[in-house]
């Protein structure tokens, strides 16, 4: 199917599902139409992209190698990766204590320390999000979604930091990361290698 056959509303739906990996719930007319075109797969309440759907979104989002905003985006992305590592480490600490036992959230001091460190990460991502949005308007909504997750976390529901089943801070962050990779046209393996290089470089 060529991309001309996908209308704007369908395109938005498809991008969202590829970035998120899936959607759950009742299939909308857009979902049905995309499924008929072989771009989505609907399995019961689960809606997943097909390899063709993923490839199409990749083509549509990827910036051309000579696009003027690409260089600045890459520079900001280089600053993003070490913060990305910190966020994943923080989520890991939220789920597991340093000795490998599961964090059952019965130690307010431990949780408070992690929540406090999350502010450092949120402070660090704030200027990067601003720049991402300036260069690629598609990336605008992430600030709001991260703030929403933080607000819900602070309202007392621990799930809003790292639960994969809701738009928690980590879930939104993961969507942002995936969106960036699709926009840059970078594979996961390249991304991992670059992050390692940047982080170990910083550590000296």
């Amino acid at each position: 199917m060529s991309q001309e056959q996908v209308n704007d509303a369908e395109r938005q739906v498809l991008v969202s599902i590829v970035v998120r990996g899936m959607a759950r719930g009742e299939a909308s007319p857009e979902h049905q139409s995309l499924a008929e075109s072989g771009l989505l797969l609907i399995k019961g309440p689960m809606i997943m992209p097909t390899p063709a759907g993923t490839a199409l979104v990749g083509e549509q989002l990827r910036l051309a190698a000579d696009a003027p905003e690409r260089e600045r985006l890459m520079a900001t992305f280089h600053r993003f990766l070490p913060v990305n590592r910190n966020l994943r480490d923080l989520c890991t600490a939220w789920q597991m204590r340093p000795d490998g036992s599961v964090n059952d959230h019965s130690d307010p001091s431990y949780d408070a320390e992690i929540r406090d460190r999350l502010d450092d990460i949120d402070d660090a991502i704030a200027p990067l999000l601003k720049r991402f949005a300036e260069d690629v308007p598609d990336l605008t909504g992430y600030r709001e979604r991260l703030t929403e997750a933080l607000d819900r976390l602070d309202a007392g529901d621990n799930a809003w930091l790292a639960s994969p089943l809701i738009d928690s801070y980590h879930t939104v962050w993961m969507h942002l990361h995936q969106h960036l990779l699709l926009t840059i046209g970078m594979s996961r393996a390249e991304d991992e290698a670059l992050e390692e290089q940047l982080v170990s470089g910083n550590h000296g």
């Binding site: 994943r88 480490d89 989520c91 890991t92 789920q95 790292a162 994969p164 089943l165 928690s168 991992e192």
Partner: peptide, 16 residues
């Protein structure tokens, strides 16, 4: 095959 114990996949697996 790839990814560390603090990868997005690990965070998601623990969360589930």
């Amino acid at each position: 095959v790839t990814g560390g114990s603090a990868s997005h996949a690990a965070v998601v697996a623990r969360g589930m």
